[in-house]
Nucleic acid binder design. Sequence first.
RNA 1: GGGGUGUUAGCUCAGCUGGUUCAGAGCACCUGCCUUACAAGCAGGGGGUCACUGGUUCGAAUCCAGUACGCCCCA
Length: 877
Amino acid sequence: MSISTKYNPKEVEKKWYESWMQRGFFHSEPNPNKEPYTIVIPPPNVTGVLHMGHMLNNTIQDVLIRRARMQGKEACWVPGTDHASIATEAKVVALLKERGIEKKDLTREEFLKYAWEWKEKYGGIILEQLKKLGASCDWDRTRFTMEDDLSAAVIEVFVDLYRKGQIYRGVRMVNWDPLGGTALSDEEVIPKDTMAKMYHLNYEVVAEGAAAPTYITVATSRPETIMADVAVAVNPNDERYMHLHGKSVRIPLLGKEIPVILDEYVSIDFGTGALKVTPAHDLNDYELGQKHKLPTIDILNNDGTLNEQAQLYVGQDRFAARRNIVKDLQEAGLLVKIEEYASVLQTSERTGAVIEPRLSMQWFCKMDKMAGPALESVMNDEIRLHPPKFKNMYRSWMENIRDWCISRQLWWGQQIPAYYLPDGSFVVATTAEEALVLARKESGNENLQLSDLRQDEDVLDTWFSSWLWPISVFDGFKDPDNKDILYYYPTNDLVTAPEILFFWVARMIMAGYEFRNEMPFKNVYLTGIVRDTQGRKMSKSLGNSPDPLDLIDQYGADGVRAGMLFSSPAGNDLLFDEKLVEQGRNFSNKIWNAFRLIKGWEVDESLPCPNETAIKWFDSRFNEAFAQIEDHFSKFRISDALLAVYKLVWDDFCSNYLEMIKPAYQQPIDKQTLDTTIDYLEKVLKVLHPFMPFITEEIWHDLKARKDKEYLIVAAWPKKDKFDKQVIDTMESVLNIVGSVRNIRNSKNIPNNKQLDLFIKVMNHDHYEPFFGVMRKLANLGEVQYVQESIDGAISFIVSGDEFFIPMEGNIDLDAERERLTKELEYTKGFLLSVDKKLSNERFVSGAPESVISNERKKKADAEAKIKAIEQSLASL
RNA sequence: GGGGUGUUAGCUCAGCUGGUUCAGAGCACCUGCCUUACAAGCAGGGGGUCACUGGUUCGAAUCCAGUACGCCCCA
């Protein structure tokens, strides 16, 4: 038989993925005889392509879902995509631009037509990429946040919340791009470090009957906004300005009187310690203005020119106005000085224009009521965050929650179902027709027509559809009692990144309680961010992110999956190194070769089984490791679970078990050993399958002929079983003995093929006999036997309190041996001293629990025995 | 500025209720091996003042306080 010494993942992966799909293993239907296990995918942007973050995230979900499926649960992983209004609209705009089409020349309908065309053509590539990773999603259930049913749910929820008084209109500061004529999200704003100028201006203090005018100097980077000033603020503790408390000042040039207000917000050391307050044109000033109930004067037009409110420089661009006012101020003698300082300039990602903070009317969703149950369920562990350290962060955010701005000045998304009447009032309804009925009723004007109503131009924030995701993918709004939602909801586990804990996770929890009176999921597993080896976030602009598909191509999906999970505990960032994936690939190869070895054996049914001890040991060892693996899973320690499987396969199964039972070259194996070994390999494949689905399925089928649906993907997950700790412990000692022998070979340059003899002088154990065979095989020993006395002319070592001798036929370096033994003797004596010290401390003996004390006594006895043995050996040298 | 969180081997991290699985794993490194499953491998080995300072305790990597540095989220 010839099987390649290297595992070749390419065709294997394609073959099994297709095969799993064909047989419908990924598909789920409600089954009352089975326990449901449900995951909804965090929907990636429909425009997105697979990046390393998706890889990690979806590998974890696939591990969880595959394990649940093997456990016999009705496993359902719902995939889908998010319409991502900002990102998608930006891509469509860019694409149209390449074709010479400007968005502003299109109507809303024309633009949306292009957008949908584009979505149909390029959208959802990412889902195809997930298949390459092996993701076992139920593709029949693929959903999209902007498909009809899901959009209908969004509108329904909006109307519902509006009627409950949870949605209102209000003013908010937005990032305005005067060149693009649009508001931008924070993500679309690029901060640029620049040198800016700080202008120091004199505001005249209003003082009746003063002989000469006195001034207060205010520092500002934006002198052209002084016409929008409504106050000057100083810190109440600032000694320089005590005399101004309760006074007023005049705006330079304009002469308008404004109050001096006191607020600790003003930092005494920055600028002159006096701050002009311009609520319409600065976020901090806006908040200050709200706090002190000051008016808001907006002096800018959409395109960045000054309007009538400014009174001066009307019609001029903000930068031209700045130049002019500086000149005028200078001439008026009110400009004290100009300073250069390092500042951060906010610019538009798309037009490069300097961002103008601007007040605008937006829609908000109240959060305080919904936050209550959402906070409580996490605090009392109804919903568990993994790792739990995120609970604190969650709490502080939820306790200081702000209302949610849900409107966006875009076209791609669900248009807000608010309809304006000609008089400026509005009604909210699911359709225009319903809106008309409402509008007629509320206005008392029965003559109103559809054409008199104007729907709000804005669309809803994308999160306003994704917060409904766990409910809407099962049509829980359209049909609240359908069998899917009743069966699959609440879902089990959610796997996502901590950076969207608030944007998304918290809001889904709120929506769950608000609309279904039930949590949306029981566990939230928070992954870390995938970074490069220097700890930098992976990003397109840095070019430090490998293409996941290239990696799969090069190392195989199984190798990449394992690589991603090595060293990525929950909540910790993953410093991605291609070496990890290499390790994953090497692991694939290791398993492959173990399979090759077993597959290559000829069986001789007449042979007796010489491997009882090894067989008994691995059975116990498997059960012990399996219990650890299950424990890791129960705590969502996926990385640790994989590492435990890794060691079980590599160390226990390959390095130890297979070496113990391996027949000599070209010798046949007995039937019992072979059958048991195949059973063991199957068990190992099972626990490995969630992590490395392809190679395990391949070996599963190569190992034996299988019936039609007898696939590993649906094979029964092992059950916890008892294990013999004694056998495991003894084998550990045996492996230590073997290690010591090998070490001696190594240090004495004794070739592996030269047999050595071993004599055991038992102190504590006399149960090594069943393990003699294992020792002989692994250490290449000839004679192995118990003795009563030390052996002269032998190298000795101690394992678990017993002394072992290897006769050396005179080629012992006596000095070296004496030195080694002396060293060990000294160490042991020191150890004994520390134990004695502890035991003679009365407070320890009276204070420590009995078990700790008896343990110390045992340590003392062991150490004393060891010292005696070493001393004897030294004497015999 | 507010809140959170972290610092253990060269790197990435475990270490759960303070006490023999307490200083551990993987990778990297060093030495020797192409020994018929695997050089993508085998065997062996070296390496840490558990950030710093103090406290609690019979006993601290572990609990508490402070300091330094880092990261995350919000503003």
